[in-house]
């Protein structure tokens, strides 16, 4: 049976990991490749890199990251951040990334999802959705790293991206992100119940019960985690042992 996945997320700015992470066994805690290789050894199922470099150099930093990671990391990895063109996607995948994630560009031009999935296959096209609660059963999609509201209903958008050929949805709750009080069960459940592609829940992980809850009660296929592993509150192995003891199938 397919396992539920634990995916550490690394935010990268100009080739360096943001939010300094201090691990004794890592020579350079700011090096995204070294950190990703560390998480591979620790038992992570995949890695997500989110490039937040705010300049025209981003295109190059993203491609460099893809290629350097390929030399040292032997689990699947996704790269996202400012990707908006087919040629750029091609370049990143060629260097060794398994998936790319698109967000703002997909809303601005939904045909990008369709074109990209036709050329490269659905399995490597992840659509990231940042959503914020508005009112009863309505979560609004935000763009540009949560700065621009769109008026679009996140659940409708999730359905639409599946139809367009997305292979996976990376769903971030802006309400929960950074709070450490648990993933957004309602939002995640609303999305997993209308799509038939894997959904990665993101935002709000503070303890291991949160991982269990969003998998068990909201049907998430994978969980994105950052600070609880970056700051060594837990080890990945520990999280997996816990999920296993809760009857969830994981890779150990």
């Amino acid at each position: 049976m397919i396992t539920k996945r634990i995916i550490p997320c690394l935010d990268v700015d100009k080739g360096r990991v943001v939010k300094g992470i201090n691990f004794v066994d890592i020579k350079d805690a700011g090096d995204p490749v070294e950190l990703a290789a560390f998480y591979d050894k620790e038992g992570a199922d995949e890695i997500v890199f989110l490039d937040i470099t705010a300049s025209h150099e981003r295109r190059k930093t993203v491609v460099d990251l893809a290629s350097k990671t390929a030399e040292k990391v032997f689990i699947p990895y996704t790269i996202g951040g400012g990707i908006s063109r087919i040629e750029h996607i091609r370049e990143i995948l060629r260097k060794g990334a398994d998936k790319i994630s698109i967000n703002t560009a997909a809303v601005r031009d939904p045909s990008l999802i369709n074109r990209a999935s036709k050329i490269f296959g659905s399995q490597c096209i992840v659509v990231a959705i940042d959503a914020k609660y508005k009112n009863k059963d309505f979560w609004e999609v935000y763009l540009n790293g949560g700065r621009t509201p769109t008026g679009i209903n996140a659940v409708d958008w999730a359905k639409r991206v599946e139809e367009l050929g997305a292979g996976e949805i990376l769903l971030t709750s802006m309400d929960k992100d950074g709070t450490k009080d648990g993933y957004d069960i309602d939002l995640t459940g609303a999305v997993t119940s209308v799509v038939n592609i894997p959904v990665i829940a993101s935002g709000g992980a503070g303890k291991l019960e949160h991982l269990r809850d969003v998998i068990k009660y909201a049907g998430a296929d994978a969980v994105l985690v950052a600070s609880i592993f970056h700051y060594r509150q837990y080890r990945i192995r520990e999280a997996k042992e816990y999920l296993k003891s809760e009857g969830i199938n994981v890779r150990i």
Partner: peptide, 10 residues
């Protein structure tokens, strides 16, 4: 079943 079959399996 969900297609593609994507992820870690035994």
């Amino acid at each position: 079943v969900k297609v593609p079959h994507m992820g870690w399996n035994q």
